[in-house]
């Protein structure tokens, strides 16, 4: 078999599909998120300065384009003279790590419980799961996180676990709803008449048809998790120094906002841009994952 060739043509096909479905906002989201991810991965190699080095002589240097600014510190320095750009780049690591890992945890729990709850809709199991979900959703997440952080030691791992374990309820509810509607579709009934087992039906028929809306919501969930992380770090309850996060940078700039606005503004912008870009990406994914736009086989119509 000419595997290479078929791979090539497959890649071509995928690319042409992405082009076909491109929307300006989707492209912007995709490119921005890619840049942030690359930045996070290659942070140690691309930062212009060591983000941890304190240099009191350079403290509160404004951005390069403002009077008194220096071209060596493009975005200026903070109150102890650390380069803001370098710190922003490093901060993306924590933000993405927390966002992605916590959503993985929450998503896994949510998907699993949602599938069970939806597929066995109306049974005692379903009732029990849904009551727990109701309870979870009734408690404000931030409050729950605050309590958990106070009880356990603040830090990166705690933060990820706490955000992950407190935000699964919304995924459960979403997945359950989707499963309930997919379950009634005729193709599921058809598989039942064939004598397919429950695991077969869930694996082959339910999950593939639930996954796309799940992925979209999970993507946007990453943005929410990043916000939560920033808020907590801003309050000093999240990631602890010397680890850098955008939230703690915001906190650092809080006292200087009147005189040295750049310390708080750039991390704030970074959070906004990242959250927006991920949201755009999520909307775009919704279109791409629509099976009606999937093409297979040859394109003649006989």
């Amino acid at each position: 078999m000419n595997n290479n060739l078929s791979h090539l043509s497959k890649i071509k096909k995928v690319r042409s599909r992405l082009m076909e479905l491109s929307t300006p906002l989707g492209i912007i989201g995709f490119i921005t998120v890619s840049i942030i991810v690359l930045m996070a991965i290659f942070a140690p190699w691309i930062v212009p300065h060591d983000p941890f080095v304190i240099d009191a002589t350079k403290r509160l240097t404004p951005p390069a384009w403002i009077d008194g600014g220096s071209s060596t510190y493009i975005l200026g320095t903070d109150h102890v003279g650390r380069d803001i750009l370098s710190r922003l780049i490093y901060g993306s690591r924590v933000s993405l790590l927390v966002g992605i890992l916590s959503v993985l945890i929450a998503g896994a729990i949510g998907l699993f419980l949602g599938l069970i709850s939806g597929y066995f809709g109306g049974t005692l199991v379903d009732q029990a799961i849904m009551r727990i979900v109701d309870a979870m959703l009734a408690i404000p997440t931030l409050l729950l996180v605050l309590v958990a952080i106070v009880v356990f030691d603040p830090g990166l791992v705690t933060l990820i676990l706490v955000i992950g374990l407190t935000s699964w309820a919304q995924y459960t509810r979403l997945v359950r709803g989707e499963v309930l509607s997919v379950k009634e579709r005729e193709f599921v009934q058809s598989a039942k008449t064939l004598g397919a087992s429950n695991t077969h039906i869930i694996r082959k028929h339910i999950i593939p048809n639930v996954l796309s809306s799940f992925i979209v919501v999970a993507t946007i969930g990453i943005a929410t998790a990043i916000m939560t992380e920033s808020s907590l770090s801003f309050l000093g309850l999240g990631v602890q120094p010397p680890d850098i996060t955008w939230g703690s940078m915001l906190n650092d700039g809080r006292n200087y906002i009147a005189t040295s606005w750049w310390i708080a503004t750039f991390p704030g912008l970074a959070i906004t841009i990242t959250v927006l870009a991920i949201t755009f990406l999520g909307d775009w994914l919704r279109d791409i994952l629509d099976p009606k736009l999937k093409k297979g086989g040859d394109e003649d119509d006989s």
Binding site: F187, L194, A196, P208, N209, K294, G297
Partner: peptide, 27 residues
Amino acid sequence: QMVFQDPYGSLNPRMTAKEIVTEPLLI
């Protein structure tokens, strides 16, 4: 076996023709 009314709803939109017709054999 059964054939359903709605030719749109009775086939899983995420399966290819091959997967659809061989599903009973797989089971």
